[in-house]
């Protein structure tokens, strides 16, 4: 998959996260979290793992985390990436 367009997924509710993606020349992941000290590294790893599974090698990915579990982070990243593909196809 390729990040073709700006897209978002998730919410700012507690235990969720908001993921924003947009095309970029290289792969950049930016994480902010209410539990940055405790789980910042885990969130980044979950994000990178998901991007690798989806074959994403380029793009800017911003995660605003409100205490989401790894499997929630993964779901939101995947949703955002898939939306970024779809929106171009629909255009």
């Amino acid at each position: 998959m390729v990040i073709k367009q700006k897209a978002m997924a998730g919410t700012m509710e507690s235990s969720d996260c908001l993921v924003y993606v947009e095309p970029a020349a290289d792969l950049q992941v930016e994480v902010s979290s209410v539990v940055m000290v405790q789980f910042g590294a885990a969130i980044k790893k979950a994000t990178l793992d998901t991007l690798a599974e989806l074959g994403i090698k380029q793009g800017f990915i911003k995660i605003q985390d409100r205490g989401a579990l790894d499997c929630v982070v993964k779901a939101r990243v995947e949703t955002a990436v898939r939306r970024s593909e779809k929106e171009v196809q629909n255009a």
Partner: peptide, 15 residues
């Protein structure tokens, strides 16, 4: 709908 589908799938997978 897409977000819920993926979230529920991950919940089944990891929780």
């Amino acid at each position: 709908k897409d977000a819920a589908r993926i979230l529920v799938r991950n919940a089944l997978k990891y929780m």
